[in-house]
Design a protein around this nucleic acid. Structure first.
Length: 677
DNA sequence: GTAGTGCAACTTTTT
DNA sequence: GTTGCACTAC
């Protein structure tokens, strides 16, 4: 049985109010996740079946964290059937069951940004529009914005003075039909189509309403209008909806998130219970004070003040470094020093930054010092060319209509099907309204292709359809994929085309890594399918916490991630780096002048991740596009009262003689000793 | 059809 | 400093 007495009064109220709508306004570190996990425990104790419980988060990381905490609380057995996932994973789950009602096949692909760009560029070419002036990315951005507001192509009313918008409006229907032809949907469609399905198909809606009778949404301040409607639909029948959020932590305005959703919750659900959590259990007094002082500069917000009865703690360390490399060196040094001093493990530390590109300097430094680290987000692995190419074979096999994947794979490894042939195949497939891959099989009907090329085209077609047939048979995946890759000669091709053997070796290892992660996927999920694996990859859901506990799973390592990714998490020791104008706040927000408050909230999120100690750093110079630039300290830095800060000016190192510097640089421990004094 | 060279643009943030 | 692309020469 679950013990409510360990909670404070408002937390207890939130946990025990299980029937009817509930709004929890929870400041940073006020035990928000705890409330949700305890609420789940309480629901189970009350006899609610696990499969009636749904908890939705924004990031995979947050979902994984929550799964783990629920599991710790109630045990794995009682979690069976419960759904804790991101909006997108939930959407895909719903779509996999019934998407045929919307005219897609069940084995639809999920298109990521690069696939989307490919389609847009193709549409631009087909419409004979010069791709330079109107770049595909801004088109995509506009279309994505419309989708987030649930506007279908025919519903869009463009602003007529905006040339780009007019063009994007013309492109939108073409883009949608191209997706459909590929039996593919993009990230925005996941939500948009799910909403359409729930709205248009009463039986489908009813099925999921019955399934999820108790719904919880974390970080509700970050929902955009499509996500908002998605949840509203699911909750409409039983109205057991609990949303948790904090307007000060709204950091997805750029993706169409609307803080209004949380502020208007009371209007939407009259008579709903509202609970405020203002006591902070996470951070020390000094950290909390700094956070309060920064966030109070935002004008439009619900006034609240977090408090703690924990002690003041240590002041915040402010490190000023000469450049980005020195920043990384200084941060890693201080990290090691804190670790020795307080007998901590690497897992107690996180390095947080505004842009993913900042991670690099820190990675290099950590690797140099042989300190284990995990990099969250950035998607580096699956973005690599060789990984993508190999994966695209699997995609084509899984969904033969997936043209973007087909295009990538046609001539890798080289098989003599070049641009000329592809143009002919493509034209023929358009003219005859037949899928591109089918055109390969019917190459005999197409004019203007020479006999040897025809043979190659047919061979490719046989290869793909043969593999597709093979993989339609259920059964073990990893071994068959390995055999397929061998047959394709992917490794040989890599060794042949890349001069540097070390690089080739690395790439081959990356391809092998796909097979490894597939094997462990199969191990975890009985009856795993190729679609299931590709889905996880597309949703970037690495399923970190499925089965094994933290100790077994992750080694003890420093966490590196963006501020956005860090939301909802906490660490004993936090390094918040790059506190400079044009970085945090980011240049983009300064230019556009609208979202400065959001940048400040981002800074607030960063500060409030820290439990025991916070270190902030900035540089005087920073390399940008390979050029050294001067940097101003962030305005947010000036908002933190000086009494909370302890300055460590690394630029003073300049005065140390070159010889001495050399000596110190050579001896890491000497530097550490110097610092400890 | 392929391979090599040069240029441009790029860096918010997530699914 | 990198990566993707467009163009040109085999």
């Amino acid at each position: 049985m679950f013990d409510l007495s360990t909670l404070n009064p408002p937390q207890r109220e939130a946990v025990s109010h299980t029937e009817g709508p509930l709004l929890v306004l929870a400041g940073a570190g006020s035990g928000k996740t705890r409330v949700i996990t305890c609420r789940i425990g309480h629901l189970l104790d009350k006899g609610v079946p696990a499969e009636n419980i749904l908890a939705v988060t924004f990031t995979n990381k947050a979902a994984g964290e929550m799964k783990e905490r629920v599991r710790e609380l109630v045990g794995r057995q009682r979690c069976k059937g419960m759904v804790i996932s991101t909006f997108h994973s939930l959407g895909v789950k719903i779509l996999r069951r019934d998407i045929e009602r919307l005219g897609f096949k069940k084995n639809f692909s999920i298109y990521t940004t690069s696939d989307q760009l490919g389609l847009i560029r193709q549409a631009l070419r087909e419409a004979n529009i010069d791709g330079k002036k109107h770049d595909a990315e801004s088109m995509l951005w506009k279309i994505s914005g419309w989708k987030n507001r649930l506007l279908r192509p025919e519903q869009v009313v463009p602003r007529y003075q905006d040339e780009d918008e007019l063009l994007a409006c013309g492109l939108y229907p073409r883009y949608q039909s191209a997706l459909k032809a590929c039996n593919a949907i993009d990230f925005d469609d996941i939500i948009m189509l799910t909403v359409a399905l729930l709205q248009e198909q009463p039986e489908v809606l009813d099925h999921w309403q019955e399934r999820f009778r108790y719904i919880m949404v974390d970080e509700y301040q970050d929902t955009n209008s499509s996500q908002y409607l998605f949840i509203s639909l699911l909750a409409r029948k039983y109205r057991n909806l609990c949303v948790v959020g904090d307007d000060d932590q709204s950091i997805y305005g750029w993706r169409g998130a609307d803080v209004g959703n949380i502020l208007d919750f009371e209007k939407e659900y009259p008579g709903c219970r509202v609970v405020k959590l203002e006591q902070n259990y996470r951070s020390t007094g000094m950290i909390l004070e700094a956070a309060n002082q920064v966030i109070r500069n935002n004008r439009t917000r619900k006034e609240k003040r977090l408090w703690t009865d924990a002690g003041d703690g240590r002041p915040i360390d402010l490190v000023v470094a000469l450049d980005d490399e020195e920043e990384a060196t200084a941060v890693v040094e201080r990290l090691e020093m804190e670790r020795y001093r307080h007998n901590l493990s690497y897992g107690d530390f996180a390095i947080l930054y505004r842009t993913n590109s900042q991670s690099r300097a820190f990675e290099e430094q950590l690797r140099f010092e042989s300190i284990p680290y995990v990099l969250i987000g950035g998607m580096q692995f699956y973005e690599r060319k060789e990984v993508k190419d190999a994966l695209c074979y699997l995609k084509v096999i899984d969904n033969p209509l997936d043209e973007q994947a087909l295009l990538r794979v046609v001539n890798f490894p080289r098989r003599g099907i070049g641009d000329g042939t592809m143009v002919k195949l493509n034209q023929w497939s358009l003219a005859n309204d037949c899928p591109l891959l089918e055109a390969f099989g019917r190459v005999a009907e197409i004019d203007g292709i020479t006999e040897p090329t025809r043979e190659k085209v047919l061979a490719f077609h046989r290869l793909i359809s043969g593999a597709a047939a093979e993989f339609r048979q259920r059964g073990e995946l990893a071994g068959r994929v390995k055999a397929l890759f061998d047959r394709l000669g992917i490794e040989d091709e890599l060794y042949r085309t890349i001069e540097e053997p070390a690089i080739a070796r690395r790439k081959v290892e990356n391809v092998e890594q796909i097979i490894n992660s597939m094997a462990s996927f199969e191990e975890r999920i009985p009856g795993a399918t190729l679609s299931g694996f590709l889905e996880k990859v597309s949703l970037m859901d690495e399923d970190r916490f499925s089965g094994k506990d933290k100790k077994e799973h992750g080694r003890d390592a420093v966490t590196l991630m963006s501020l956005h990714a860090s939301k909802g998490l906490e660490f004993p020791y936090v390094f918040l780096v790059g506190l400079e104008e044009e970085l945090l706040p980011h240049r983009k927000s300064l230019d556009e002048g609208v979202s400065l408050d959001e940048e400040r909230r981002l800074c607030y999120v960063g500060i409030t991740r820290a439990r025991q100690h916070l270190t902030i750093s900035r540089c005087v110079h920073r390399k940008k596009y390979g050029k050294l630039q001067e940097r101003e300290p962030s305005r947010f830095l000036a908002e933190i009262p000086e009494r909370l800060l302890q300055l460590h000016d690394g630029t003073a190192k300049k005065t140390v003689s070159a010889e001495e510097q050399e000596k110190l640089a050579g001896d890491f421990f000497a530097r550490m000793r110097a610092m400890l004094e």
